[in-house]
């Protein structure tokens, strides 16, 4: 059964997405193994991502977030269900057609940036444009413009090792944008960044969606990203769950499922934790955490 739970940060469930869909996920499942060893990583998930929308997918470790992101980004084929990009069922395409889809329609931002160490910031961006058929000179020019817009105009000739984490992530963002994709997939984009640069990255992603009309799908544990998300989806056990009814861990602020969470009582009130560590930390200063 499909389990679409489109939930705003304020808890109100959004009925439908009005804008024409760019990415449509219908009843998608991913199973590994068979028989007794079968693992269902993603279970019958449906989702629609509209142009200019920022969708944040959260969930505990092992919930299937990465598997879902891989399927959305045409890096992994679903076992069942369909993924449609502007009317074309990309989940049914042959493997050899997928690189071109990724190259021209998707942009990727990775947790570890994954820049090419031997190339400069400008070359890292330009190479993706040349892969799509752009002439070298034009690709370098476009890369230069994009990096300039992202505040890296003075860092064009710097190798990644000479860039800070935030600068690397901006280069990765420019690389993701260089072929003018419809969708940007970001995998934990703020995980390796400090608070300030993480915040800047979030604002950039929001800008990309709102000013340029591109869709942005983010997989992250970072609660701060909720601030820029149009929708937050909670994935657990391979399915989207309603965040409204989920208690929040008072220590790490992560939504947790009541039945599976670690519980502790304080002052006659139950509290739920994602892990024993959070519970132990809570018990050291319960008044402080309970007041949050």
């Amino acid at each position: 059964m499909s389990a679409i739970v489109d939930t705003r940060i304020d808890g109100r469930t959004e009925a439908t997405v009005a804008a024409p869909a760019t990415l449509q996920v219908s009843n998608v499942s991913k199973r590994y193994g068979a028989g007794e060893t079968e693992v269902i990583a993603v279970n019958n998930v449906s989702l629609t991502v509209a142009p200019g929308e920022v969708v944040l997918i959260m969930g505990p470790s092992g919930s299937g977030k990465t598997t879902l992101l891989l399927m959305l980004g045409a890096l992994l084929k679903p076992t069942t269900g369909t993924i449609t990009l502007n009317g074309e069922v990309i989940s049914a395409l042959k493997e050899n057609r997928l690189p071109n889809i990724r190259l021209r329609h998707f942009g990727f931002v990775f947790q570890d940036f994954n820049l090419l160490a031997a190339l400069t910031a400008q070359e890292n961006v330009a190479i993706v444009a040349t892969l799509a058929g752009m002439k070298n000179g034009a690709a370098r020019q476009k890369a230069s413009t994009l990096l300039g817009e992202l505040g890296l105009g003075q860092r064009l000739d710097f190798l990644p090792e000479k860039l800070s984490g935030g600068e690397k992530q901006r280069v990765a963002l420019a690389r993701a944008l260089v072929n003018d994709p419809m969708l940007i997939f970001a995998d934990e984009p703020t995980a390796n960044l400090d608070s300030k640069t993480g915040h800047e990255t979030m604002r950039l992603l929001q800008h990309i969606a709102k000013e340029q009309g591109r869709s942005v799908v983010i997989v992250s544990h970072d609660q701060r990203i909720k601030d820029i998300a149009d929708r937050v989806l909670w994935l657990e056990d391979g399915q989207f769950k309603d965040m409204v009814e989920m208690p929040v861990d008072p220590v790490c602020a992560m939504p947790v499922e009541r039945g599976k969470a670690i519980e502790a009582q304080w002052n006659g009130k139950p509290y739920y934790f994602c892990a024993q560590g959070c519970r132990d930390e809570f018990m050291t200063e319960p008044a402080r955490f309970a007041a949050k």
Binding site: P99, R102, L103, L116, A117, L131
Partner: peptide, 18 residues
């Protein structure tokens, strides 16, 4: 040593031939 970079290029859309 560069398999992560080659993997990233593949993810970004570089074909095997390249």
């Amino acid at each position: 040593a560069r398999r992560a970079e080659y993997g990233a290029l593949k993810a970004l859309g570089a074909g095997n031939g390249y």
